[in-house]
Amino acid sequence: MLDSLRLYPKFIEIAIRSRMQYRSDFLVGIFGVIILNFVNLSLISILIGRFQALAGWRFWEIVMLYAMWLLSHSVYAVFFWHLVLLDEDILHGRFDQYLVRPCNPLIQFLGREINYMGVADIIFATTAFSLAYSNLDLRWLFSQWAFFALALLAGLVIEISISWIIGSISFWTGRSRALFSISIRFSVLSQQYPIDIFGYWYRVFVTGFLPIAFMNYYPLTILLGKQNALEIPRLGLFSPLVALVLLLIGWLVWKKGLAGYTSSGN
C-alpha cells in the first residue's frame, strides 16, 4: 500500500500534464465557476430580500454557511471529484487495467485525474467567508478556529466518503450516476440554506441518512451560537465522528465491492 501511495504523486503529475493539453478549459472553467457561484448567491439574496431571514438565519450567516461548505467542497472537487466517474471506468472495463497492474486500484483511480477548477472555488469561498466573518462582527478564539478547521476537514472527509460509497455501489449495480446526481441535488440545496426551512423530515434525511448536514450546518450552529435551537445542541461536535464513521463505511463498501467485482465482459 505504501508503494502505491508513493506512486500517487506521479499519477497526479501525469494528470496535470494531461489537463494542460486543454488550455481553453481553464478560462471557460473559471468563467463557469464564477457564474455558478453567482447564481447560487443570487438565489439566496432574492429569498433574503423578501424574507429578511430564513429560519432565523440572516444573510451573512447564510453566506458563511455557503462559504464553509464550499471550502471543504473545493478541495474535494480538486482531488476527488472523479469518484463520480467510477461507474464509467467499471462499465468500460478501464478498471480491469488497474487490477492488472501491481499497484492499489484505488490509488490508480484517484490518480487518474485532477480538477484544478476547484481552486477557483477556494478563492471564491475564502473571499465570501472573510466578508461574512467581518460583516457578522465575529471574533473567534483559538479554540473556535481550531474547531472550524477540524469541521472543514470533517466536511471534506464526509463528502469524500459519501462519494466513495456511492461510487462503490457501481461494483454491484454497474451504474451510480443517478445516485450521484440525486446526492448532488440535495447537497446543493442543503449546503446553501439552513436545513430547517425544508421541514422536519428533510432534516432527518440529511442528518441521519445522507449526513451532509454535518458538513457545515451543525458545526456552524455551534460557532454562531445557534445550537440551542436544535433538539441536540451539541450535534455539531459530532462532525469528526460522523466523518470517521462514513470513511470506515466507505472503505468497507469499497473492499466488499472490489471483492465481488465482476467486470462487464464480452
Partner: peptide
C-alpha cells in the same frame, strides 16, 4: 467545441 464540466454546471444552474 470542447465540452468542459464546469461550464455544464454553470449553464445548468443558470
Amino acid at each position: 467545441t470542447l465540452k468542459i464540466d464546469s461550464f455544464d454546471w454553470a449553464y445548468d444552474s443558470l
